[in-house]
Amino acid sequence: MIEHVPIIALSTLLDPRFKNLHFKNAQASGKAVSFLRRVISEKMQSSSSGSENDGVPRGKCDFWLYHKVLVQKDRKRSEGRQGDELSLYLKNPMTPLKSNPIETWEDMKEVFPRLYRQFRQYAVVVATSVPLERFFSEAGENTSKKST
């Protein structure tokens, strides 16, 4: 089944129009959710294992360091209260089919920053040659009409 293809499963899960609604296999859905949780967790750990001074080289004074540390602590506290981003995202209603998922994510990126980064990585554009074929077909018809 196509839902077992990791990139397609993640792309579907991160599309706010579909999320996990169309997964026929609960195991495939759970696997995609677990993978996404693991990726987000690893990204959080790797970013928090960096220096406390938020990229400011040692020996340089950062006037706003204390503020940055307080903001980071407050963010971690609020994350614990709200639950994880993925659970909140999946509980939110799906967006209409006619909505543009890229625009939707631009609106949601402040609420779900980690998922937004994953969306940017896994969102795929469905490639199709139909518009190009239509263009050449019309061009061929116009050429045929001109030559007669």
Rank of each mutant, 00 (worst) to 15 (best):
F63A: 14
F135R: 11
R17F: 06
K31I: 15
V69A: 10
T95M: 05
K68A: 08
M94W: 12
C61E: 10
D62H: 00
F35L: 10
C61I: 14
V33Q: 01
R17I: 00
E106N: 13
Q72N: 12
V69W: 02
S78R: 15
E42Y: 11
E106M: 03
S144V: 11
T12I: 02
K146N: 11
G55K: 07
Y89T: 08
L65I: 15
G83P: 03
A9E: 06
L14W: 03
E79A: 09
L97N: 07
T95S: 09
T128K: 02
I8D: 13
T128I: 02
R17G: 06
G55Q: 05
D62K: 01
N20M: 14
S11Q: 10
K91P: 00
S147P: 09
A9M: 01
E85H: 07
G50H: 08
K31W: 08
D62E: 06
S87N: 08
E106C: 03
S51Y: 03
L88C: 04
G59D: 02
K31G: 11
S144C: 07
A32I: 06
M108P: 06
G59S: 01
N20Q: 09
R37W: 01
K43M: 14
V5I: 14
S78Y: 15
E138L: 10
L97C: 03
F63K: 09
K24T: 13
K109T: 02
R81T: 13
S129I: 00
R134N: 14
N20E: 14
V39H: 04
M44L: 10
F63S: 10
Y66K: 15
H67M: 00
V5S: 13
V111T: 15
L132N: 13
R75G: 12
Q118D: 04
V5C: 08
K76N: 09
P57L: 04
S47L: 10
